[in-house]
Simulated scan of single mutants.
Amino acid sequence: MTPVARRTADIASDWKSNSYYAFAEQQAWTDVFWNPTSQFRRLFEQLDSSKIVDLACGHGRHTARLLDVRSGSDAPETVYLLDVNQENIDACRARFNHDPRIEMYCNGGYDFHPIPDESVTAVFCYDAMVHFEFDAVFSYIRDAARILRPGGRALFHHSNFASAPGADYKENPHWRNYMSRSLFAHAANRAGLSILDQVTINWDEETHLDCLSLVERPVDANLILVARQERKFDFYRRMRRKLKSLVKG
């Protein structure tokens, strides 16, 4: 087992023996994410949910709400449920076994396997990535770029807590792990994804504790490469002008 997989498994085990999943099913808890006036819902409405992944699905509470808000002509063709805990996948199978659109997999905790390359239109992850180690977050970002179709988008709810590097995440407010809005944006850029929107949000009494990041795999991946080259050329032009002014001076 790799270090990132081991850390993910350790974090996932913290949620096996507590009562989180029972409480999380309450409508008051899910309304935080699915209320029409929430930032979560505003950004979610920018996803094409035709073939969508619910990462760290738990017992499937968000997929249940997804199927409520996207019905009729907007109904998903396929929903992939991924979770590192087999117990959660078993719970989802019991809950959704009647629905042929839903595929459920226990994954390794750092990528989207076995989902094929360029096969999904969207990914979302709510109330889980906030606890992930930074290297697991980066790994998922890189693999999201693999599974998203050109033009596909991902919406990640992640931590914006960067005040205690190296601390045990359970010692941080609301068990948030070390991550920030800017670190996430940097990782997404390096993975070839475009940042469409980032919104920091409060969680209970903690201000700007979390962040919602909406990213897109460009239709033409070369556009990002061109933008990077243009930034490099602009840097070199500025340096050349500066050197010329120093020589003249």
Rank of each mutant, 00 (worst) to 15 (best):
E205M: 00
A91H: 08
Y178M: 02
E25K: 04
F96K: 05
Y105C: 06
V215Y: 10
K248W: 13
D99N: 07
N172E: 05
F235E: 03
R70C: 04
S49M: 15
V4C: 04
Y80N: 11
Y20F: 04
L223W: 07
F40D: 11
L225Q: 04
H157D: 09
I195F: 12
D220P: 07
L214I: 02
V123M: 04
E171I: 00
S71M: 01
A144Y: 08
H157M: 05
S182E: 14
N177L: 01
K244T: 13
V32K: 02
T30E: 06
H131I: 06
D54C: 04
E25F: 05
P114V: 05
V123Q: 00
P100W: 09
G109L: 12
M1V: 15
F184V: 00
Y80M: 09
S50H: 13
H59A: 03
Y140Q: 10
Y20L: 03
R231G: 01
L183N: 11
D68M: 08
L155C: 04
D143T: 01
V215E: 01
F134S: 15
A221N: 01
W29G: 00
E171A: 04
A221Y: 02
A91R: 12
M239N: 07
H157E: 09
S49I: 15
R149P: 06
G192N: 10
G151Y: 09
T63H: 05
N107Q: 07
N160I: 06
I102E: 09
